[in-house]
Amino acid sequence: MSGPSRRTLARRLEAVADFSEPSASLEQYLTPADLAAHVCHLAGLHDDLDRPVLDLGTGTGMLAIGASLAGAERVVGVDVDPDALALAGRNAAAVGTGPIEWVRGDAIRHPFALTDGTVISNPPFGAQHGNRHADRAFLEATAEIAAVSYTIHNEDSQSFVESFAADHSATVTHAFRAPLPIGNRFDFHTRSEQTLDAEVFRIEWR
């Protein structure tokens, strides 16, 4: 699938607005435009946007919007928070995308009868709650519905993700680090900003 360049994607995604009142319990952060553009551009290069695309825990809609801009014809963004879905809808309208379905629901208890989709997701890390690998539940849901996935995880997650994939007879085909700036937005944050070395994985499940 041919589509816009990564730079063009990033430039357009810079218009995606952040949460005005983010929820700490839902770990609501804005996925950086550069990172979203990188992931969605890579998915386009591998023709993974030819399948239905699902953004589990869509939040601001950044990844769903990026997938639509990169050429995906069917995109669904799922989130448990109705305010997040409203924001995602406004962001899609502001950026100017193709049609995106916004579905309110728990991403880890999804309603989709699908086994060949593409999941693109920035799941919660769980780090600040002491709940290591809160992203496991998202991977379990992904394993049920995806032929391929692109997921963003906390630093030092590679052994966990590779082990999870192996347990599900899946293959990690790409793994790379990407800077993920985290601003001071919650009471437990002690720095004005910190940057994590997030880890991104492309997994072939079938």
Rank of each mutant, 00 (worst) to 15 (best):
V78M: 05
P179T: 05
A36C: 12
Q128D: 13
H129Y: 15
G98Q: 02
N91K: 05
W102L: 06
M62K: 01
A88M: 04
F125K: 04
F19K: 11
L26I: 09
N131A: 15
G98I: 03
L180F: 15
S163C: 13
I65V: 03
R7F: 14
D197Y: 10
I108G: 08
A134C: 10
I203M: 08
I65D: 00
Y150D: 10
D47A: 13
T195C: 05
N131P: 12
N91P: 06
R74Y: 10
A198C: 08
P181M: 07
R109C: 09
I100T: 06
R90C: 09
F201T: 05
V103C: 12
H41N: 09
G96C: 09
V76Q: 02
A86E: 12
F125A: 10
A67M: 01
L69H: 04
A86Y: 10
A143P: 10
F164S: 01
F160D: 11
L196Y: 10
V95Q: 04
Q194H: 12
R136I: 08
G44W: 00
G59L: 06
H110M: 07
N184Q: 14
P22M: 10
A137R: 08
D18S: 13
A33D: 07
S149P: 08
L85T: 02
R104T: 09
A17N: 13
A43F: 01
V16D: 03
E101C: 11
A107W: 00
G66K: 01
P32K: 04
L45S: 13
P52W: 01
G130K: 06
H110E: 12
Q158K: 14
D106N: 12
A141I: 04
E193Q: 15
A141H: 01
A175Y: 13
A17R: 15
R7C: 12
P52A: 06
F164C: 04
G126F: 03
G126S: 10
D81L: 06
H110V: 07
H133V: 13
L13N: 04
S25Q: 14
D79K: 00
A72R: 00
R136W: 11
V76C: 12
C40K: 00
L13H: 02
T58K: 02
H41A: 10
L49S: 02
G105E: 02
F138R: 05
T31H: 03
A72F: 00
P22I: 08
V75S: 01
A36T: 10
L9A: 06
R11G: 10
R185W: 11
F125R: 03
R11Y: 13
S2R: 15
T60F: 02
F201L: 05
H41R: 08
V161E: 00
V76P: 01
P4C: 07
L45H: 11
R6L: 09
